[in-house]
Amino acid sequence: MAKSPANKKAQTPAIGGRPAGLFTWIAVGVVLVIVVGLVAIKMTSGSPAANASTTFEAVDATTMSQLSSVPASVFNTVGITSPVAPISAPTPLSGQPALTKTVNGKSLPLIQYVGAEYCPYCAAERWTSVVALSRFGTFSNLGFAQSGATDVYPNTKTFTFRQSSYTSPYIAFSGAETFTSIPNPATNFYFPLQKLTATQTALVKKYDTMKYIPTFTSTQENGSIPFIDMGNKFLSAGASFTPAALAGLTQGQIASALSDATNPVTQAIIASANEHTAAICVLTNNKPAAVCSSAGVKAAKKAMKIK
């Protein structure tokens, strides 16, 4: 077939005798002008005012009560059933030195959370963590937060551990939020918030890796957040359920539904909280018994093959 048309005269009359390459030059010119224009607009446009010191809004008493007083019947009814938003359980870890923290002269198993406020997966995971940990102790100064507005699953409503404290006779908890949810135009990322301690960094470097997290498919996933080390007995990397489950809901809507065992969002939070609770019960030698022997936690233990 095909012979160079340059050697053949077109059999139909040319329109206005335009040269063959004209269309190409016009097309290339138009595309380049548009793309260069968009880049120029992006580079010269004023970035939205960003302030690293975001305001902190503490969680109100009603919401705190709803988080910490989920009826036992809901935990037991839900168990590990979450058909709408499937959940993933913490990964057991063996042969590692116990991770502890001395609190008031007493060595307690430490649960270390590492995340960031912009991170939507952290946003989902905090619901699980707060509900599970509230069965063993008390949070104070927990803050309202939402994930990054321009990230995946934008504006997922959640909490922040940035100024929180946690007291429990059974376990210690440390939460580190490494970045805010405010974009930093200078770095094209987010403003930093809390710097990890050397110990926290070492935990992430060692355990938040493909070697210990079986769901990681490549070393690129190493260091993913959220990362939770439960006393070096269980690890959790990534969200226990998809942040999509929380889309469009406020903290108040989610928290107030925690007493409804038929609510799909509640099921995702409670089912994952039961699995986290089962893991924590390993650290506390099944204390308190009312929690660790409950039907919901037993169901989680059975699924996770925990005795």
Binding site: P5, A10, T12, A14, G17, R18, P19, A20, F23
Partner: peptide, 15 residues
């Protein structure tokens, strides 16, 4: 854009 106009006779294919 380089070949279709010539192929369909929209332009003068003479160099």
């Amino acid at each position: 854009t380089r070949v279709t106009p010539t192929q369909l006779g929209w332009v003068d294919s003479t160099p």
